[in-house]
Design a binder for these strands. Structure first.
Lengths: 205, 205, 205, 205
DNA sequence: AATGAATGAGGCTTCATTCAT
DNA sequence: CATGAATGAAGCCTCATTCAT
């Protein structure tokens, strides 16, 4: 990569960062290109040298971030000796990633959890597909865990739903409280509860 | 209530219904007042006789629907002999309500799950407060269940998170698939899995 | 037509008139919608209640004017006892129409004589087709004149070209001189010259 | 001229050629400097080293082409033994020039026939003056022809109008049909008809 | 109360032009 | 001279809101 190309990439990244900042604060519709430009310390026109329009800037910003996280959480799902270990790893790494990128995950949840009204901006089908694939990998681990006797012989799809739901729900909880501090013990408790279930254990005589 | 008042209320409800229809299809920002007016078979001006502005129309529509559901799910959480029964009731009733109002819940999840960018439209703090209260009631039932020996002696806050998360996540799954049909067995399996947990049961030989 | 419809039509016509004024002075590209709105004593938004966009406003304005002229010159081409009479009538009526609508014909010649770069604004193919049809009617009259022995037995297509060319050229000449006054004698001379040709008549001593 | 100067001139000519290409395809307003630069295989900045701005580039391109044609058609108007011969020569040479430069004449007619809305770009008054002068030369030839008994003793200004009008009109006709092929016989017929006029000749018994 | 035309602020986008390298 | 990224003024268009009827 030439120096010129490197610099251009740097500028593009600067704009993406500014976009993340502004979009995460105001949301897509209440953020203006002028605001993103100001945040990036560029003029509006410059944004259009890098991105075709607002929708595309938004979409590229989302992809850029997703691409940063994907390898991290992918690796986490592959690290550990047993399926349970890998899933545990994955679970806590998901929290790591969220806490490392609080701004982005304000947007992420708005986009991925809510239904998609807008077919121009927002996650592309391609990104959604990648998420689905991820969920299948996760399901695969659960399945392996079932076979290994670590997990109960129940629907792995349901496990994925509960697992993801619990994760998202707790992140949403934290996001609603701007003063929330990370509580790793709570994360562990959550994971344990997922494993053990709500029900009181039988005969603990 | 006079005839005049009754008619006015009817017209207002007609507009709210139209708003639900249009907002759920297009989302707040891509829906126009003109579109809502057309759907309601009124003119734009009339909308402004009933609602101060678009934000307020949106907010009132959300409240109107929430007010419809609240007694239903509130009652469900009070119906049953044991905490577990009441929670089970509550769980399935939540699904009932979602399946009875698919349009609204497209919006609901967009609003409640995503973070709130917009302080004008969307759920008001008051509605959020009511939701929180509800969760506390739910937590209360879990607590009662713990004391009654039905639930494990673990954090009831975590149980609420897992419970709500699983519910939301499964609804989101269904919403992403427009051809999805309701599967009550799956709902039951989900509930059972919440109770029993993912982990394989220790050798109960 | 209801009163409301009549008034709407009036307003639309007012806007078209303003558009004619502004476009004829500045040309399509140097005229702004804001300027047309000001001329029409409306706000910009109102223009868009009547016309989808700038291109369409321009096109509709052209059509509106063309539709006003067409019956006049069509009738002229049908008035007179012989083909020569009718063509003479047509010729002078064309001048009448131009002198009655100097503003519009600044645009008209820009659009119709120049080549069309812009496929959105400008004369639509439909209007061009109508012009072509008109030229065929004119050719028909020439043909009739040939058969009647009034015109030389030469290519009527060429006659049409010379006829139209002479007309356009003299109008352009006049348009270039903003102080030009109409000179009906010159128009007659021009017509006579078209009939008699440039060449000296053979010695009819 | 030094090598440096020669090279500079060459580059300037390259840009003018590119400008002709692009402007003739898209028209002044729909062509961008970036497009001209790409066509010229230079960067935009370089264009501004040679031309002050877009308007001037356009004007210089027009002048450059006009300067190329002028000597050719000037010479044609001076070649021939009689006024009629010279005018005939001129007439056909005008067609030669048009057929040799179809691209340019798309612009030429748009600029010269239409009225000038734009006082920055387009033909400068100076070029228009030169055109007028040319028409006066032509008129002079007609006058000489009248005196020589070759032309009828009628207004030479009218003859010029008809002559130029016929020429322009037939070129426009051809430009509207992109598949048109040159038809020299038609050109001759046109010229003959100009001379003889439309009217049937009186009894040549 | 209902209407719907008029309003105009606000946002997106383009592109001629500049200037540091 | 050549480059091409940066600039920002300018223009089109939308749509929530108002108000005279």
């Amino acid at each position: 990569m030439t120096r010129r190309e490197r610099e251009a990439l740097q500028r593009k990244t600067d704009i993406l960062q500014a976009a993340e900042e502004v979009f995460s604060q105001k949301g897509f519709h209440y953020a203006s290109m002028e605001e993103v430009a100001r945040q990036a310390e560029f003029s509006v026109g410059t944004l259009y040298n890098f991105f075709k329009n607002k929708d595309e800037l938004y979409a590229e910003m989302l992809h850029w971030k997703v691409d940063l996280f994907e390898p991290i959480i992918k690796k986490a799902l592959q690290t550990g000796d047993t399926p349970l270990d890998r899933i545990r790893n994955f679970f806590f790494t998901r929290f790591d990633v969220v806490w490392d990128n609080p701004k982005f995950f304000r947007i992420y949840y708005h986009e991925s959890m809510g239904t998609h009204y807008d077919h121009k901006a927002g996650f592309t089908p391609e990104v959604m597909k990648r998420y689905e694939l991820f969920m299948e990998h996760l399901a695969g681990e659960f399945r392996a865990g079932v076979e290994a006797g670590q997990f109960a012989d129940k629907s792995v799809e349901m496990m994925v739903i509960i697992f993801e739901g619990a994760l998202h729900q707790s992140v949403l909880r934290l996001q609603r409280n701007p003063n929330a501090k990370r509580d790793k013990q709570a994360e562990k408790d959550l994971f344990d509860l997922l494993l053990s279930g709500f029900a009181a254990k039988p005969n603990n005589n």
